[in-house]
Nucleic acid binder design. Sequence first.
RNA 1: GGGCCUGUAGCUCAGUUGGAUAGAGCAACUGCCUUCUAAGCCGUAGGUCGCAGGUUCGAGUCCUGCCAGGCCCGCCA
Length: 568
Amino acid sequence: MIENIKDLVSQAVMYVCTRPFREMRVTQKPVDSQLWTVERPQKSEHGDFSTNAAMVLAKTLKRKPRELASQIIKAVHDPDSIIDKMDIAGPGFINFKIKNEAWQKTLTLLMPLEDIIPNIGQGRKVLVELVSANPTGPLHIGNARGGPLGDAIAALLQKTGHKVVKTFYSNDIGGQVDRLGTSLLHWVKTIKKMETQLPHEGYFGEYVQELACEAIRDLKISATLGDETLLAQKLSHYGVKKLNEEIRSDCEAMGISFDEWVYESDIRKNKGLENIIDCLRKNHVTREAEGALWFAPQDDFMQDRESVLIRSSGEPTYFADDIVCHDDRYKSGYETIIDVWGSNHHGHVPKIKAALKVLGHNPDKLEAILYQYVRVVRGQEIVKMSKRAGNFVIAREVLDEVGRDAFRFFLLMRAASAHLDFDIALARQQSQENPVYYVQYAHARICSILSKAPHQPPCAPDCSLLDLEEEINLIKILNDYPTTLYEATLQREPHRLVFYLLDLARHFQSYYSRAKKDGRFKVLSEDVDRTHAKLYLVKIIKEVLSDALNLLGVSAPHEMRLDDKGED
RNA sequence: GGGCCUGUAGCUCAGUUGGAUAGAGCAACUGCCUUCUAAGCCGUAGGUCGCAGGUUCGAGUCCUGCCAGGCCCGCCA
């Protein structure tokens, strides 16, 4: 529908804009059609669509906006007669009211749903890196925000015609992993009542101590420890393996699976690093100092951001491996590479991009979605940390308490750039305060209606029988679904879909409830044709609800019953 | 000291990339269960968009400077 209006306006604008030039026998096009837009206004009094074309073009054409608007209106050619009326409003908006019949006719065009999903990707390859938690501890709530977020972004891309690969990048070697090993050694020695001290910035949560216990058993560590350096190495391998398994299982519990796991240790083995370093050297963006090799391009921006690539010990850094990893991705032909990372990586992004640019890649293909960290609250109280983790709130503890649907929905409700308060008390409430149930309940109610219906709705019902204002409104909202998908995908903002769902659910719940007082709102009635039309409408609402919930990784239940033993 | 993000109703947050009289949920106050599920619906109230300038037909949105909070600035990842 919005496309139809855009076309009509576009033709009219072209006509109006080119007329003075035609009269002067000049053929050039004076304006760029990209400047103006057609939008759904916030307020229904402003019609179904509105355009700012007259205001935007007023300056270049040196005319008054309202005068230009009236000329555009005169030039609109509406062959299918879908426009009810056009008004000039405010400083020069043109508002379009669409006939109800035209809206009713759009309904059958919405099915099957797959046909209206915008094909943005055209099969282009996209890589999404998500979670990528270090295997030095259990998944905490900060890492976990990137899970549903990256997963929903991937699902949106997949839905809109991209070929998506979801990848987990595991930093399974390096300083932090070494520290895990020495920390485990400390706890092993503690258990064995030996003299020991926790290494500087060592890991101390209960999970490390549990892990040390299991290691003693699994690795059959005897009273004589042997070479401690060697043992610390064995322990770090052991810990990394165990923690990676735990992280993988936590992701599964969140409903997230990966197409590939990339290990930093494998990148290190593959020798790609030498070529990259060579290439950086030849481009004169490295510098040797204090025994280490630095990435040091000569531009103002990177001046204060020089970073070590190869340590004085000869060991490459995480930064170096990450350059290799991203270089691989570019070479694999990805059109877009999306890294969903915690906001603490923001300093890392420009460095990676700078290095990739030197390597001859287009840095714009790399998008970092940086999300702000999560604060867990329980009502008024701030939940600071978990006993088991020491410093963090463990994702699994929250997930187990509130359930997967509420967990994902809550983490997706906010824009990535916004700080997020996760209220456990609210998320586990089975009440009207909880938005996830609200949306699911709308879906369940429709399922209930459909199951009670004597017949399935026909393919081509008489949609003109959907003449209630609320029904036309629902049809309008359903027509917004493709636009919402389009914007949520391009902006990488799944929360737009959450807000769309809440809006659709709210309108449906309102419509549904009116039936208690007013029989015209009842879906199932004696009037067979009307029942068919209404069934058709609610079925599409159900399809859209379940489609969108599915993209968010939230279930769309067919039935919901309040437990008597639930919250008070 | 430098950088990134945030500041909108009592609380948690949207705000269609510069549009019209700034929106929603919760909390507060009203009503509504014999009829497709009350995990629901109807209504009321609630605002100096952190502050001060600037850009223009028009600013919550853009630019500058302040103020407040979070995060980053390591031969950690």
